[in-house]
């Protein structure tokens, strides 16, 4: 703030110290979490067959970390391979559709038909077709993220700045040059919007895949179904907590990546 402005009492505003701001942004959600935890404990202590106590969940994780770790790795593997392939394929198909509209006309109706079919219903059929290995799980996880990636990427590739496109046309830019220098970087805000939807869905997809296409009986989703069937509530809830953690980590990593790649799309980050 300039001297002229601070000298004027009307213009002066107390700006919060960094510590105060940190407290201000962390304290309200922290209070919410504490209240929920207390309520949880009250319910758990009075109804041991409905909810496990928080310390029993924690004890379960601490007593057998290796088991949880191994199952989490299986779920991670499904997410990395399955969702990774779904994201990549969704994006590449969007590129193909935006460059060759005939592909969109030919393929989009089929994709819509597949997408309105519940994944949960397809999964058992996939197990029959592809066996009890990891493949059906990759496919289910991939299917779930594929559609939001495709639709968002396609919207982004189409949302090109028309005036900039005119400049490229008068320069007789090749299709590749227009894609590399204009469409590809320009569609990134939409791609990241798609990823923001796809990332939590990837965790859902992996868990659902393990429920329905059980097969090898590994992964956090399988752990949930098996332990629930045995009424082993601490294990059930520990697995759910880890699935939740996985989602939070994925979304946070994505936010970090977005900041690196898309700094130019947030005007307030650059500052005017």
């Amino acid at each position: 703030m300039s001297d002229a402005m601070t000298a004027n009492p009307v213009q002066t505003r107390k700006t919060a110290s960094p510590v105060a701001r940190l407290v201000g942004s962390w304290l309200p959600p922290a209070v919410t979490f504490v209240i929920v935890a207390v309520l949880w404990q009250v319910v758990a202590l009075n109804n041991p067959y409905v909810l496990p106590t928080l310390e029993s969940v924690g004890n379960s994780m601490a007593s057998d970390p290796h088991m949880y770790w191994a199952n989490m790795l299986v779920t991670c593997q499904e997410i990395v391979i399955g969702a990774g392939a779904g994201i990549l394929f969704g994006f590449l198909l969007a590129v193909a559709m935006s460059e060759l509209p005939i592909i969109e006309k030919a393929v989009m109706p089929l994709i819509v038909v597949i997408m309105v079919t519940p994944v949960v219903a397809i999964a058992p059929a996939l197990v029959v077709a592809f066996g009890f290995g990891m493949l059906p799980k990759y496919i289910v996880t991939g299917l779930v993220v594929f559609f939001p990636m495709l639709v968002n990427s396609l919207a982004g590739l189409r949302d090109v700045d028309q005036k900039a496109l005119d400049v490229f046309k008068t320069l007789h830019a090749s299709r590749w040059e227009t894609f590399r220098d204009l469409r590809l970087p320009g569609c990134m805000p939409f791609v990241f919007a798609g990823l923001r939807i796809a990332m939590p869905l990837a965790v859902v997809g992996a868990a659902v895949a393990e429920f329905v296409a059980a097969g090898q009986q590994a992964g956090l989703g399988s752990l949930v179904t098996i332990s629930a069937a045995q009424a082993n509530l601490p294990v059930t809830w520990a697995s759910i907590a880890l699935l939740c953690l996985l989602g939070v980590v994925l979304v946070s990593l994505l936010a970090l990546l977005r900041k690196r790649v898309l700094w130019w799309s947030d005007a307030d980050v650059i500052g005017r």
Partner: peptide, 19 residues
């Protein structure tokens, strides 16, 4: 002329690439 880059266009909006 376009093939030879003989035309320079200044559109209504600056149309600069923000990245």
């Amino acid at each position: 002329a376009a093939r030879r880059k003989a035309i320079g266009l200044v559109p209504q909006s600056p149309a600069l690439l923000p990245w």
